[in-house]
């Protein structure tokens, strides 16, 4: 009975505290970018601090035994324990997910769920201007993926060298090709769209694991496998394993 009343009274505030402690910690350690677009950082942290003050005021001023209005006394029924049990479960899940689980990016499992390079705007919104003077060394995964999708011909790519960083995801049909992959995020991880640049490297499965981060430097060639969906690929001179960058998503 005591547990039920305590849970009923405080679960909202406690869940708020869990959420805002996690938010502020993510903000302080620079990991909010794993979940939301940087434009929300300030708003998110400010609201978390305001909510923290309100929660503390609630602890100080809201009577803990009864709230003076006489509700919170639900009639005891056979299924009455379900509600507090559900609340305790929710709190436990929140602690587990927000406070114990190490923060993490999306993985190749989501790449498989969402069509790689299937998203038009993730690719074309920032498609670089095709001038001969463009500084190709600064081109990102997104820029190259956009160019490849835009249908620029083999002549265009012939003399270009790309240096791209991303995690490895497998091509669904061509065993010899993997993608250097990044997620494009518009708002939060929920809307992340995978994009990637194809790399031709037979037997890559034996050397690298999917989801591991690499930097690939190479020129573009025609895919030796003519049946492949990817006609122009990187055929790398070097593949360097690397660590996950500070900002794993691109915007």
């Amino acid at each position: 009975m005591v547990v039920r009343r305590l849970v009923g009274r405080w679960q909202g505030v406690v869940l708020s505290l869990i959420g805002l402690v996690a938010t502020i910690w993510l903000g302080l350690t620079g990991q909010l970018a794993l979940y939301i677009h940087p434009r929300y950082f300030v708003f998110t942290v400010v609201m978390a601090v305001i909510a923290g003050v309100l929660a503390l005021v609630s602890f100080a001023l809201v009577p803990s035994t009864h709230d003076g209005h006489g509700h919170g006394h639900e009639p005891a029924s056979r299924w009455g324990w379900l509600l507090p049990a559900g609340s305790v479960l929710t709190i436990a899940a929140a602690v587990g997910a927000l406070l114990i689980l190490p923060p993490s990016t999306l993985t190749t499992s989501t790449v498989a769920q969402r069509d790689l390079n299937g998203s038009a705007s993730a690719l074309t919104l920032k498609a670089p201007a095709l001038t001969s003077k463009a500084d190709y060394s600064a081109f990102t995964v997104r820029d190259w993926a956009s160019l490849l999708r835009s249908g620029a011909g083999q002549d265009f790519f012939a003399d270009k060298t790309a240096t791209v960083t991303g995690f490895i995801s497998a091509d669904k049909t061509d065993r010899d090709v993997f993608f250097v992959t990044r997620f494009v995020v518009a708002c939060c991880a929920v809307d992340a769209q995978p994009i990637g640049v194809p790399v031709y490297h037979p037997g890559w499965q034996n050397e690298y694991k999917t989801d591991s981060w690499v930097t690939v430097t190479s020129g573009f060639r025609a895919n030796p496998n003519a049946a492949s969906r990817e006609t122009i690929v990187l055929v790398p001179d070097s593949i360097k394993p690397t660590t996950q960058p500070e900002q794993p998503y691109v915007y």
Partner: peptide
Amino acid sequence: ISVVVESL
């Protein structure tokens, strides 16, 4: 977590 952090 992303939904929670974004909506909170």
